[in-house]
Amino acid sequence: MRKVRFIVLCILLMFPLQGFAMSQDVNGNKVEEIIKLMDHQVTKDFVMDQLEDIAKNSGMSLDEAANIILDELLIQEELAKQEEKINLQGPGGGGTTVIGSSAKGNIYYETAATAGIQHGHVGIYYSSSTLVESMPSTGVRRIARTNKQVASGARIQTVSSTSSTQKSNAANWANGRVGENYSYNFFNNRSTSCVGDKNCSKLVWCAYNLTMGLDLDHNGGLGVYPKDIRDHSRVLTLVQY
């Protein structure tokens, strides 16, 4: 009897694992292409970890997840080509115009490249003179508005049909994240925790999603990128540089 149980246990352990491995196979070229589009700022292990997380939570295969990530990265690349100028020095590293003041909870967008992707950069006004943003070098930080110099294509934006209290709550939430680390995971940042490592778009997206249930992701993909927030139907441009 014990022998039979042992054999059954072995079968149950072996076959599901084999089936899982087969269903989770991914084309290595796709992984390399993702790394290339991220300007080699992420490793193969990092990409695989994100793919496995997506597969685990969505039920899709790694290859299917890789296809979606590639599509989103290519969309970001195409959107970047439409911008008149691209600041290749990174957020705040090449502009010459000090960004103007705006109301608490409003959003700013600037042309920028992070990890080689020209997908822009977003942050939120904590006050008319103070900004909160997440940067690769520092993580989530609070800076004086006068230290933010932007290039052509930058925008100051507001979320329509939103009260000043709601905007203030979003800004307060973002400010409460100051000190948290930066994350290069744009791939599926919609599904990762809003507390902990986060990139710039994750910070702004979480601020409005958690405080008022507003999803500011323009296309609703696995990842929310700065241009997804910039182009959302309820995000209106007040000033464009």
Rank of each mutant, 00 (worst) to 15 (best):
P16W: 10
N181A: 15
F6G: 11
E72K: 01
Y225D: 03
N219L: 15
C206R: 04
A55C: 07
Q89T: 14
K202F: 08
P91G: 07
Q18P: 09
L238H: 06
N147T: 14
A113W: 02
S23F: 12
S161R: 12
D71Q: 06
H232W: 09
E83M: 12
F186Y: 14
P136E: 06
V178N: 05
I68W: 00
N106C: 04
D215M: 07
D71L: 05
G176M: 07
L73M: 15
C194R: 07
M60V: 14
N29A: 15
G120H: 02
F46P: 05
F186D: 01
R5G: 13
V132S: 00
N147S: 13
S163N: 08
S137A: 12
D53C: 09
M38L: 11
Q82H: 13
S160D: 13
S137C: 07
A144G: 11
D45W: 10
M38A: 13
E83Y: 10
G196N: 06
S168Q: 11
S201F: 03
D63V: 01
Y225I: 04
N172I: 11
G120D: 02
L216A: 04
R142N: 08
K148I: 04
Y225E: 04
S129L: 11
C206A: 08
S101E: 14
E110V: 03
I11Y: 10
I86T: 08
I35P: 03
K104H: 08
A151W: 04
G92V: 01
L238E: 10
L131V: 12
T96I: 14
M38S: 13
Q240C: 07
Y108Q: 05
T158Y: 05
R155M: 11
T111I: 00
T97V: 15
W173N: 03
V4D: 13
S134G: 06
D215F: 10
D71Y: 03
L222N: 04
S127T: 11
P136Q: 02
Q76Y: 02
I68F: 03
Y208A: 03
Y125D: 01
F187A: 04
A21F: 10
S101G: 13
P16C: 07
Y184F: 15
V204M: 01
A151C: 09
V8T: 14
S152D: 14
T158A: 08
Y126T: 07
V132G: 00
L131E: 02
S183L: 10
L13W: 12
D45Y: 11
L238R: 02
L216P: 04
W205A: 02
H121Q: 05
D25Y: 11
V8G: 08
H40Q: 15
R5Y: 15
V132F: 05
A115D: 13
Q149I: 06
N185Y: 04
Q82V: 11
L13N: 08
